[in-house]
Amino acid sequence: MFRGKAWKFGNDINTDEIIPARYLNSSDPDELAKHCMEDAAPDFPAKMSKGDIIIGGKNFGCGSSREHAPIAIKAAGISCVIAHSFARIFFRNAFNMGLPIFCCPEAARNIKEGDEIQVSPETGLIENLTDGKEYRAQPIPEFMRNLIKAGGLMKYVAAYTKEKSEKEK
C-alpha cells in the first residue's frame, strides 16, 4: 500500500524535466534524486516527502530512454506515479527499475495538488483521502509486484536464479 501527498504535473512531462541531461554524468541514484523533476518544479526535491505520489497528465516520461528518470524518482522516495498515460520506454523502464506506476485518466484529472492519496497495487484502488473519491487503475500483477519488491528486473532475475539453483542442489 502506498500513501502520500499528491504532486501534480501537466501533460508530456519529459525525461529532460524529470532528470536534466546536465546531471547524466552520474548514474548514482542518490545524486540523481537531488535533481528529480527539477526543470518541471525547481523546489520539488526540497519540498517533497518520502512516500509522496506524482500525478502526471498524458504521455508522462516522454523523450529519452534514460533509466536515470525512473531511478531519480524512485531514489527521491516517491512511492508511485499515477498518470493519464505513459510514454512507452518510460513505462518499461519504470517497472524494470522497480518504480510502481498506474495508468488512470480519471484520477490523473481529478486529484488536486496536496491531496492525501492511498494506492493499493494488489487491487489498483486509488483513494483520495482528502475528498473521499475513489478510482480504479489496473492492479499490478503478482509477478510484477514481486519484481518491484525485489528492487527491479535484474535483482528479481538474480533472486529467481539463486532460488532455482538452490532448489536444484
Binding site: 530512454s65 534514460r66 533509466e67 520506454i89 518499461r92 523502464n93 524494470n96 527499475m97 527491479g152 528486473l153 535484474m154 532475475v157
Partner: peptide
C-alpha cells in the same frame, strides 16, 4: 527501437 539500460543488459 529504443530501450532502457536494463533491457540492454539482458
Amino acid at each position: 527501437t529504443g530501450v532502457g539500460s536494463t533491457d540492454l543488459a539482458a
